[in-house]
């Protein structure tokens, strides 16, 4: 019988100092983001708790918390969805024009201009909305209430100041346009020449080539851009607070002067004058916004990974 000797211990790979430092700092950064996120979540839950458990009579307006938050949540989603519906096709079209249609020098300039749009502070957008866009929209609102009144969105009576949900949504659309178009431009530019040439060699026109080889390839990027934009639209405070004439109440009427406020704008407007349980209620609405934003992002991820086989990444 031969005794089997224990296999030699696997050689420990040499741990270099630089590797250890880098691995440590990268891990630390990763942990930090989780800690921050957890901290925010814990803060929101603990501060919102008194409002969640409170009797509805003690809450602002004497309504239950759900009844307090529901119109705000509705307003938030409505404004953001309007912004997304307007900005996504426009952003994708701009990105396609810049990457495949514009002459080279114009394309570069347009790229800069779009990036510049993203750098404008939201208070400026708010002023633009109230001073320029809202008055400009008033005639349209009057016309829409008269002729398109059978559509619930345009039921009227038309606002005479233009401070409507539609105006707020349009301001938000302009704000998120650069995000969507910048990210779309990035992914469209990366559509492989290999596949673009395959489409052209089959006799595709430029638009058909874009449909076959560019849009499918860039789809997940466009969705990611739209979700980033949606995140900004959901959380945008100042522009909405300035532009929207809010009086509460859930309505799909986009052009009247009584609109639901949004969570972020409501917090900004109410917080300075609130105390006690009212503050907790505001924070509870913030918690609702946090949860919605998280859900939107997870939904976007799910869309992106759903058909990973066909994503072109393999």
């Amino acid at each position: 019988m031969t005794t089997t000797s224990a296999p030699p211990a696997p050689a420990q790979p040499k741990r270099r100092l630089g590797d250890r430092l880098f691995a440590g700092s990268a891990t630390g950064a990763g942990i930090l983001i989780l800690v921050v996120l957890a901290g925010v979540a814990i803060f929101l839950v603990t501060e919102a708790w008194p409002a969640i458990t409170a009797d509805s009579a003690d809450l602002p307006d004497g309504k239950s918390l759900a009844a307090y938050i529901a119109p705000l949540l509705f307003g938030t989603l409505l404004a953001a969805v309007i912004a997304l519906i307007v900005a996504t096709p426009l952003g994708v079209a701009i990105a396609l024009y810049v990457s495949y249609y514009a002459p080279k020098r114009l394309a570069a300039t347009m790229g800069y201009v779009i990036d510049l749009l993203a750098a404008i502070p939201s208070v400026v957008y708010g002023f633009w909305g109230i001073a320029a866009l809202a008055p400009a929209m008033v005639p349209f609102y009057g016309w829409a209430a008269e002729h398109l009144g059978w559509i619930p969105f345009f039921a009227g009576p038309a606002s005479t100041t233009g401070k409507t949900m539609l105006t707020a949504g349009l301001v938000l659309a302009v704000m998120i346009l650069p995000i969507i178009s910048a990210i779309s431009r990035e992914v469209f530019g990366q559509a492989p020449a290999l596949h673009r040439e395959a489409a052209l060699a089959l006799g595709a026109t430029r638009w058909e080539m874009i449909k076959m080889a560019v849009l499918p390839y860039g789809k997940s990027g466009v969705i990611a851009g739209a979700m980033l934009g949606l995140g900004r639209a959901l959380g945008e405070t100042l522009a909405v607070a300035i532009v929207l004439s809010a009086s509460g109440g859930i309505t799909f009427n986009l052009i009247s002067s009584s609109n639901p406020s949004t969570i972020a704008a409501n917090i900004a407007l109410q917080f300075p004058e609130s105390s006690g349980l009212a503050v907790n209620a505001l924070i509870a609405s913030g918690l609702a916004l946090f949860v919605i934003t998280l859900a939107v992002n997870m939904f976007a991820r799910w869309i992106v990974t759903r058909r990973a086989d066909f994503s072109g990444a393999n």
């Binding site: 596949h195 040439e197 395959a198 066909f310 072109g312």
Partner: peptide, 13 residues
């Protein structure tokens, strides 16, 4: 018709 150096089936199809 044309066939290229690197195989290029459309990955999204």
């Amino acid at each position: 018709g044309m066939v290229f150096q690197r195989p290029n089936p459309f990955p999204t199809m």
